[in-house]
Design a protein around this nucleic acid. Structure first.
Lengths: 223, 223
DNA sequence: GTAGTCATGTAAGAGGTTACATGATTAG
DNA sequence: CTAATCATGTAACCTCTTACATGACTAC
């Protein structure tokens, strides 16, 4: 349950409402972890029940109130535990790679479209992460600033370094994905130029009978 | 629902039983997609209902039988559709990065242990993927061989190239993760050497009062 | 006979997505 | 007054994990 720890980590910078947290999980925190509000609110209630956080009801305007959550001592201990434990790596599930392994079922055009999307997506992500690393290092990230305010100056260096380190990992990942997509585009162009055929291309050309011809052709070869 | 398409993709090489499929999803296919048998069997039933695959009951031994699944025309069409569509990128959720961003809560020792694990894990994965790419290119992968048997020779080149391309993506990812972990280890050692303190280290040293001292210290600074 | 493999399920629960739903407050 | 934002939920549904469960077949 990493959502729980992501919430604890953000709350360690500053007490805030569920709404504030949701904004972070749509914004900068979503750079490593994302969650919709329908997941955040119930989880906060459960964490409160578990004694990891506590809520104070704060008035807003005339009639309305909001609930502001802050870490308890127990919540801090949980963060310590989590940050120190070695967790088994999660099972691999990569749709992009799964699809790429079976691109033979697509057409050259559709494959190129997908690889270009891949390239655009990771390029955009990369830009965001680079921006964030810059902002972290120049002290322009409010959440980090508030976290540092609660810590003695001799700890600041490490905190900033770890935050930047995490996002540099994302940048490295993006670099790998970008290079991969480019390599894929080159591969497709090379295959196209060499006149290599693929199943998807044929099926596209002759929707019904193309598939049949292919199948019987195979049956003939097998028999 | 990528499990469905992963199953379709494997079945496109050869008709086989749920048990066979489960083995692939623990073996080579798990290199990009993994699933336990408790997920595979029900999904196969649903796919059969949906007309994407069909089962023939094959006897084994005296009394027992097994169900062998093969793609239907509709299943092939679904594979085509899936392979041609652009899918929105899945939301980011990376526990390792989330943790790294908050390593301040750990101790130098626990951080190093985790980074070393990360390094070992991705190095091992990398070795497997490299082995697989080699085997794919030298025609030693049974599943690929059976897939190629159903296709005219002029399509072989592209099929092999796409398979290898997918796993090269995994290798590139592994390279990025390995470099990241090494960078992290260097960072920790540098911080340690420079005498920088982190919260987790202090909490470890003085479990109860360390945290309090820190907190009141902060309150004092803020007030 | 017995251990290992082949073969196929069910079920409870956690985590996540999408949609539905509501009402107060604030800025224009 | 009206639109945007603040604020907080519930519910149905899907995917995945973990555990429980069963029985036939094969090699020794």
């Amino acid at each position: 349950m990493s959502l729980r720890h992501a919430l604890l980590a953000v709350l360690s910078a500053d007490p805030m409402t569920g709404y504030d947290l949701v904004k972070y999980f749509d914004g900068t925190v979503a750079f490593v972890w994302s969650a919709p509000h329908s997941q955040v609110y119930p989880e906060l209630r459960r964490m409160e029940q578990a004694g990891l956080i506590e809520a104070t009801t704060v008035p807003r305007g005339e009639r309305a109130t909001k609930r502001e959550y802050s870490l308890t001592r127990e919540g801090e201990r949980e963060l310590h535990r989590w940050a120190s434990e070695v967790h088994p790596p999660p099972p691999l599930r990569n749709v992009d790679r799964l699809k790429a392994a079976h691109f033979e079922w697509g057409t050259y055009e559709s494959i190129k479209r997908q690889l270009r999307e891949h390239l655009n997506h990771w390029s955009a992500q990369r830009r965001q992460w680079r921006q964030l690393v810059g902002d972290l290092e120049s002290g322009e990230v409010p959440l980090l600033r508030r976290r540092l305010e609660r810590l003695p100056p001799e700890q600041h260096e490490a905190v900033v370094a770890f935050r930047a380190f995490a996002f540099q990992g994302q940048i490295a990942r993006a670099d790998a994905e970008i290079a991969w997509a480019k390599r894929g585009l080159a591969l497709v162009e090379q295959l196209e130029a060499s006149g290599a055929t693929i199943a998807g291309e044929l099926a596209e050309a002759q929707p019904a009978d193309g598939a049949r011809a292919q199948r019987t052709g195979v049956a003939g070869a097998t028999a």
